[in-house]
Simulated assay, not measured.
Amino acid sequence: MKDALQQLLNNCIEKGSEEDLSALAYLLEGFEKKIDKKYVQYIDGLLHMERKIDKEKKTCEIIVPLNAIWNNSLDIVHGGITATLLDTAMGTAINGILPEGYGAVTNQLNIHYIAPGLGDTLRCKAAIIHHGSKTVVISGEAFRTDGKKIAHATGTFFIIQK
Rank of each mutant, 00 (worst) to 15 (best):
I129F: 03
S17A: 05
I138C: 13
E19C: 00
N110I: 14
M1A: 13
Q7P: 00
T121H: 13
K2I: 13
I63M: 04
Y42S: 07
L118F: 06
E61D: 11
V137H: 07
G45M: 07
I63A: 03
E50R: 15
G117D: 11
H131G: 00
D3G: 01
S139V: 08
L9W: 09
M90S: 12
A4V: 06
E32V: 09
Q7I: 04
K15P: 02
G80H: 06
I62Y: 03
L122E: 06
G119D: 02
A126N: 06
V77T: 15
T106I: 08
I111S: 01
I35G: 01
G132W: 07
T135L: 14
A115K: 12
L21I: 09
N110S: 15
D75I: 10
G91F: 05
L24V: 12
Q41H: 15
L122F: 07
A89V: 04
D146T: 13
N95T: 14
L27G: 11
G117A: 13
I94A: 13
V105S: 11
F31S: 13
E141H: 09
A153I: 09
E14P: 00
K38M: 09
A151Y: 06
A83N: 02
V137P: 00
W70T: 11
Q6A: 07
P116D: 05
I43G: 00
K15G: 04
Y26P: 05
Y113K: 10
G91N: 05
A4E: 11
S139E: 14
L47P: 05
A68F: 10
I53K: 01
T82F: 03
V64S: 07
L109W: 06
C60L: 00
G45F: 05
E61R: 14
E29F: 04
V105F: 07
I53H: 00
Q6R: 08
E61K: 12
A142F: 03
E18K: 06
S73V: 09
K55W: 03
H152A: 13
D44W: 02
N72C: 09
L74A: 14
Q6S: 06
I159M: 11
E14S: 14
S73N: 08
S22F: 12
K33Q: 14
D146Y: 12
K37Q: 14
T135C: 03
K52M: 08
T88M: 12
T154Y: 00
I160K: 13
A153Y: 01
K57G: 10
T145Y: 10
S73Y: 07
I94F: 12
L109D: 07
T121Q: 10
L66Q: 08
E32M: 08
Q7G: 06
S17H: 03
Y113P: 09
A89M: 03
I97W: 01
T88H: 06
K37N: 13
G30P: 05
V64A: 11
S139K: 13
L8A: 03
Y39G: 06
L47C: 13
A126M: 08
Q41A: 15
T106K: 04
N95F: 08
G79W: 10
E61L: 11
P99C: 03
I128R: 01
L85R: 01
N10F: 04
D87R: 05
S139G: 08
L8V: 02
K125H: 09
L122N: 06
V77W: 01
N11W: 04
G80K: 03
E18S: 10
C124E: 09
K125V: 11
